[in-house]
Design a protein around this nucleic acid. Sequence first.
DNA 1: CTCCATGTTTAGAA
DNA 2: CTTCTAAACATGGA
Length: 260
Amino acid sequence: MPELPDVEIYRRRLDSKALNQAIERVQVAAPALLEGISPRGLARALVRHRFALTQRHGKHLFVRIDRGDWLALHFGMDGDLAYYGPAGERPSYAGVVIDFGNGFHLAYVSSRKLGRITLARDPHDYVAKKHLGPDALALDRKTFVALARRGRGAVKTWLTNQRVIAGVGNIYSDEILFQARLHPKRELGTCNDADLGHLFDSMRKVLRSAIAARADARRMPHRFLLPARLAGGYCPNCGARLRTLRAAGRTTYFCAHCQH
DNA sequence: CTCCATGTTTAGAA
DNA sequence: CTTCTAAACATGGA
């Protein structure tokens, strides 16, 4: 699930539970998740330290290690963060488990192992190296419109390009375009100021609603596409059967009647 | 067995 | 150089 809203939920979970606890041990069950650092190196960076604060940029989560670097987490297609106590059970597919002095644990969970864990000097440095665009929720309307004016091609491809704007992926781009009533393949160059303003508003509304719904489609407003898509099929606006196409290399759901 | 999946990177084509 | 597509990554589920 990990697009911007999901990662924001992970960030808040870590923030409310796992800060300022002494790290006693780091177990790496899936070394393939680590990028540019060995299991021993990761343990050396973390053990006897504490997490001080968190930060998020797009789909990337950063955790400041006191008197040290930042832990940078990306979650791929199915990554998750689980926090559990002494009585809790280690989740399946826990690739990295951090044990705290209070008996609690933080686990990076992923079966497909498409995410990555690494150390960064600081978030800014990491964002620059990855060529990430501005965070979707930190972006103001003027900058958004200016970026869009420079963009080319299908609006969905542009919106999901992390080098343009960081945080929007396949699932939420469908929701944003549905709310903005824009066809996923609509050429960006044919969008006027009203279209772009509407797109910006929809992006903020969708991302903020998703965070408020704890990134759970079942808790989202019933006028959203997401719950309908889970249920399997009809436009919550006009009732037409939803259609699919391929855009930006991925399956795209949309309403041909409402989106142009 | 086949196909598909919420992400990213890379190779190759146009 | 830009843009797009397909494949690859690893694995589970329908």
